[in-house]
C-alpha cells in the first residue's frame, strides 16, 4: 500500500503526449497502406524495385531521382500532389508522424500558460514555430 499520495501529473504534458501518441499510431497505419500499395501498383512513376536497386547500388540521391520516371528530386509538395502513389503515401505517413509534434506543442503551450508557466509557454510557442518552419524548406541549402 502506498504510504503517500501520488503527485499530480501536469495536464500540459498529458495533452502533448496523447496528441503525439495517436499521431504516431495513425502514421504507422498510413505507412503500412503505402507499403502495400507500393508493391501492388504496376506502371507506377516510382517503382519500388528501381528505388531499391538504385539505392543498394550506391547511387547518390540526385542520380536516383534523375534516372527515375519522375526525373526530378521530390519534395513534400510532390509527395502530397501524388498521394495516391504508394511511395508518396509512405513518405506522407512518416511525415504525419513527424508533424504530430506541431499541434502537440501548441496545445501544450496553452495548458502551460493556464498553469502560470508563462516562460515555458512562450518557449513552446517558439519551438512550435521553428518546427512549423522546418517543412517549408526555407532554410534548406
Amino acid at each position: 500500500m502506498p504510504t503517500k499520495r501520488k503527485p499530480p501529473i501536469p495536464v500540459s504534458g498529458v495533452v502533448y503526449g496523447e496528441i503525439i501518441y495517436w499521431g504516431t499510431c495513425i502514421s504507422a497505419l498510413l505507412v503500412l497502406v503505402g507499403t502495400i500499395l507500393s508493391f501492388l501498383e504496376t506502371g507506377s512513376s516510382v517503382s519500388v524495385s528501381y528505388l531499391l536497386d538504385a539505392a543498394l547500388a550506391g547511387k547518390n540521391v540526385e542520380t536516383i531521382w534523375a534516372s527515375s520516371n519522375i526525373q526530378q528530386v521530390p519534395n513534400i509538395s510532390f509527395y502530397i500532389s501524388t498521394w495516391t502513389n504508394g511511395e508518396s503515401l509512405t513518405v506522407i505517413g512518416i511525415a504525419a508522424g513527424v508533424l504530430s509534434v506541431i499541434p502537440a506543442i501548441f496545445f501544450s503551450s496553452v495548458y502551460l500558460w493556464r498553469s502560470n508557466n508563462h516562460i515555458f509557454a512562450i518557449v513552446a510557442l517558439v519551438s512550435g514555430f521553428l518546427t512549423l518552419l522546418a517543412p517549408t524548406g526555407w532554410f534548406s541549402p
Binding site: 505507412v31 521530390p74 519534395n75 513534400i76 505517413g93 522546418a134 534548406s140 541549402p141
Partner: peptide
Amino acid sequence: SAAIWPYINVGALIGVIAAPWM
C-alpha cells in the same frame, strides 16, 4: 522532427526503405 525535413525536401528519405525501419 525538425532535423528530418531538410532530408525529406532533398529526396533523401526514400519511403520504401525507411518504412520497415520505422
